[in-house]
């Protein structure tokens, strides 16, 4: 479990995650609590050690994008949980669009019905 926060004041669910994790790394961007830096950097180190079989990620889009690239680069299976503003939540309004990889074409799928968890190879974020 790699749990990243901006700084100490934003840290939540530390004990809960620690209790269910074999390995637990907590980071803050400014180093005010836990390890200093982005959680993904510590994930990368462990991937390089060969300790990671799969990645499941949720969080802000820039972070997910970085995780998606890391998974692609290291060829580790990865699933990401996306958030998007929803109107209906049942696949009707088409509000919560996310682009999927479809070559030259622009194709959208929708977080509410097709997601929210996607294989990181499928979506273009």
């Amino acid at each position: 479990m790699y749990l990243g926060f901006r700084s100490k004041e934003f840290v939540i669910l530390e004990e809960e995650y620690k209790n269910i994790s074999d390995k637990f790394v907590l980071t803050t961007d400014d180093g005010s609590y836990g390890e200093k830096g982005f959680a993904i950097n510590f994930l990368r180190q462990d991937i390089e050690k060969g300790n990671i079989d799969a990645i499941y990620a949720c969080g802000p889009l820039p972070m997910l994008k970085a995780v998606q690239e890391l998974a692609k680069e290291t060829k580790i299976p990865c699933q990401i949980s996306l958030e998007e503003r929803m109107g209906c939540g049942i696949g009707v309004c088409l509000g919560c669009a996310v682009q999927v990889n479809a070559g030259e074409d622009t194709v959208y799928t929708h977080v509410c019905k097709a997601g929210p968890v996607f294989d990181s190879n499928i979506v273009k974020i």
């Binding site: 503003r85 929803m86 088409l94 919560c96 669009a97 682009q99 074409d105 194709v107 959208y108």
Partner: peptide, 11 residues
Amino acid sequence: RPGNKPPRVCE
């Protein structure tokens, strides 16, 4: 039609 880029809705 593929539709517009997200975000597409807001309250």
